[in-house]
Simulated assay, not measured.
Amino acid sequence: MDRIIQHQYDQLAQHYDQRWQWYLDQTLSLLQDWARITPGDRVLDIGCGTGEFERRILQECPQQSMVGIDLSRQMIAIAQTKCNTYPQVSFQIARAEELPFADASFDRVVSSSAFHYFVNPIKALIEMGRVLCPGGEIIILDWCKNYIVCQIYDYVLKWTDPAYQQCYREAEFHEFFNQAHLTIKEAARQRPGWAWEFMIVRATGTGSGSFRQKFGI
């Protein structure tokens, strides 16, 4: 599955920002508002794509420390080019379910429009909780299957997109956080136009030590 996603997004990378400009503006603006990133935060962006979120944050705070991960080499290459003048920002290929970082490495873990590609969403959330510092926050935005149009997307993509897993109803989404022992502090749904409805969650963890005890990691 990783190779399928890599191949698909390697092909899309060159024209991705231009093709999805409106969508990126809507989703990343919403993620930025919810993330409430402060200059001292260490930020992990899961499914960073072409580094557009990093670029937006760096425009406001050029000293921000950020790490982006993605499965597409071409997406990562574009992200690195965008942010090559910021030594405190890095990108690497990695899976959400196997984050290559130490416990309690980040103050903010964010992800936009990637959750519906996760093969094991609960394991991905457990990993996010593991690398989150005490008092840190996880902010995830994804499509909301409560909305009929997103149900249509979900049906069609399962037949046409080999990399796609599924999107979820809000209650299912929230239950994943509960199973990963993450506490939801705030949640909402937002529909910027008829074509999409997004759900977004802000959650906290319980500290890396307790995560290791609960999940044997």
Rank of each mutant, 00 (worst) to 15 (best):
119 V>P: 03
136 G>K: 00
107 D>P: 04
81 T>K: 15
128 M>N: 09
126 I>F: 05
36 R>K: 15
183 T>V: 06
192 P>Y: 08
199 M>R: 04
135 G>E: 08
77 A>L: 08
149 V>Y: 09
182 L>W: 01
114 A>Q: 02
57 I>H: 04
145 K>S: 11
169 R>A: 11
213 Q>I: 09
54 E>F: 06
88 Q>F: 05
174 H>L: 12
83 C>Q: 03
21 Q>A: 13
30 L>G: 00
96 A>K: 02
162 P>L: 07
70 D>H: 02
125 L>K: 10
46 I>G: 01
101 F>Q: 06
138 I>H: 01
117 Y>G: 03
82 K>T: 08
31 L>D: 02
187 A>Q: 11
29 S>P: 01
23 Y>Q: 12
22 W>Q: 14
171 A>M: 09
146 N>E: 15
81 T>W: 10
72 S>Y: 00
98 E>S: 14
123 K>W: 00
103 D>T: 13
197 E>L: 08
11 Q>N: 12
24 L>E: 11
20 W>H: 15
80 Q>C: 12
192 P>W: 07
212 R>G: 08
135 G>D: 06
32 Q>W: 05
205 G>Y: 05
135 G>H: 09
198 F>Q: 03
118 F>G: 01
202 R>S: 12
167 C>V: 08
177 F>K: 02
197 E>Q: 15
73 R>P: 05
29 S>G: 13
120 N>I: 00
15 H>L: 07
198 F>P: 01
57 I>P: 02
213 Q>L: 10
73 R>F: 09
67 V>N: 04
23 Y>R: 09
198 F>N: 05
192 P>S: 07
36 R>W: 06
43 V>G: 05
115 F>A: 12
129 G>S: 06
25 D>G: 10
49 G>E: 06
108 R>N: 05
113 S>Y: 10
6 Q>A: 14
13 A>Y: 00
72 S>D: 02
114 A>S: 15
24 L>S: 09
49 G>P: 07
52 E>Y: 09
15 H>D: 12
122 I>K: 10
136 G>H: 01
161 D>I: 01
176 F>P: 00
101 F>N: 06
183 T>Q: 12
17 D>Y: 01
